[in-house]
């Protein structure tokens, strides 16, 4: 049994790892003992309801926030405390983010061309504007947009899905090793979500990116990520191989999440609301207390079993 997910893959050094990270905001324990590792060419999904701490993890990894306790490791080095200006710059170049809201994350007064040329020039990936132009076209084509049409456009001329593709292209322009995508599809129409998920999965593979995919939608996690962490109330309750977890979820909260994913072939039963409300409340209250013990239930499948018994209906 191993408590430490970092020790799991020996010989393979993660680009970024959180090691037993705690984050407190006053009396609120937003993160409790989070240990995750991001590897090149692999995606890790953080799944949980709003307020469970998944965005706090992303903010710590993007260095917009710092752990109260525990370590942030970057290519094996302890980088919990801020380093020199040049070291911070190098870190930020290596770790890029795609945000939830495609409508507010592009500057409305600049063209798409400007959004992509700037990171190329600033990071020295194109020495001249002429060379940058070629790189912009390649980036746009790579994220599935028509370079000739899209380059000259302004953000308001694009749909939400197209803007999210531009955001991904902007992140790629920096040539990062890690991409943190925080709910990249939740503000998009259902009908275009799959396209964005497929794009993320493809660039991850082609560019050997380490991808941290944050979502409240466990169904989309299955599309992108080889590994997942189910979080509740700041704690990792179940983690490991995505397929193993989905096929055989062991923690009651993971089961609760899966039970609530809308499934057209399973109509909701009338007269069931009181029962489900009670189960959901029970599962939440038994998943909330800090659980130190980690149990290995498969080759790459771990849970923090709740101290109390699981409701009989499970």
């Amino acid at each position: 049994m191993t408590q430490d997910p970092l020790a799991r893959q020996k010989g393979e050094r993660p680009i970024i790892a959180l090691d037993r990270v705690e984050r407190r905001f006053g009396a609120v324990e937003a993160l409790r003992g989070i240990s995750i590792a991001l590897h090149p060419g692999r995606a890790l999904a953080l799944v949980g309801e709003s307020g469970c701490g998944k965005t706090t993890c992303a903010r710590i990894i993007a260095r917009m926030d710092h752990p109260s306790e525990g370590r942030l490791l970057y290519r094996g080095e302890d980088r919990t405390a801020a380093g020199s200006a040049s070291a911070e710059r190098a870190y930020r170049r290596d770790v890029q983010m795609v945000f939830q809201d495609p409508f507010s994350s592009l500057n409305p007064v600049y063209s798409i061309d400007h959004h992509l040329t700037r990171p190329l020039l600033l990071n020295g990936h194109a020495p001249t504007r002429g060379e940058a132009a070629g790189a912009v076209e390649a980036l746009l084509a790579d994220v599935g947009l028509d370079p000739a049409v899209t380059r000259r456009k302004f953000p308001h001329e694009l749909s939400g899905g197209q803007r999210q593709r531009v955001n991904i292209a902007r992140a790629l322009a920096v040539r990062p090793a890690v991409l943190v995508a925080d709910e990249p599809t939740s503000m998009l129409d259902v009908s275009i979500r799959l396209g964005i998920l497929e794009l993320l999965a493809r660039i991850k593979k082609e560019r050997d990116l380490a991808l941290l995919y944050i979502t409240h939608d466990i169904a989309t996690a299955a599309h992108v990520a080889e590994e997942m962490v189910v979080m509740f109330a700041g704690q990792m309750v179940e983690w490991g191989d995505t397929r193993a977890i989905l096929a055989d979820p062991r923690h009651p909260y993971t089961r609760l999440l899966l039970s609530a994913v809308p499934d057209g072939e399973r109509p909701l039963r009338r007269g069931d609301s009181t029962r489900f409300l009670k189960i959901a409340d029970e599962v939440r209250s038994l998943s909330r207390p800090r659980a130190e013990r980690v149990e290995q239930v498969g080759a790459n499948h771990f849970i923090r079993p709740p101290a109390e018994a699981v409701p009989a209906a499970a």
């Binding site: 998920l197 939608d217 989309t220 397929r243 989905l246 609760l256 039970s259 399973r266 489900f276």
Partner: peptide, 13 residues
């Protein structure tokens, strides 16, 4: 619509 793989649709609870 992104949906769960068949293995994950056991109908918990």
């Amino acid at each position: 619509i992104p949906h769960l793989p068949a293995t994950a649709r056991q109908g918990w609870f």
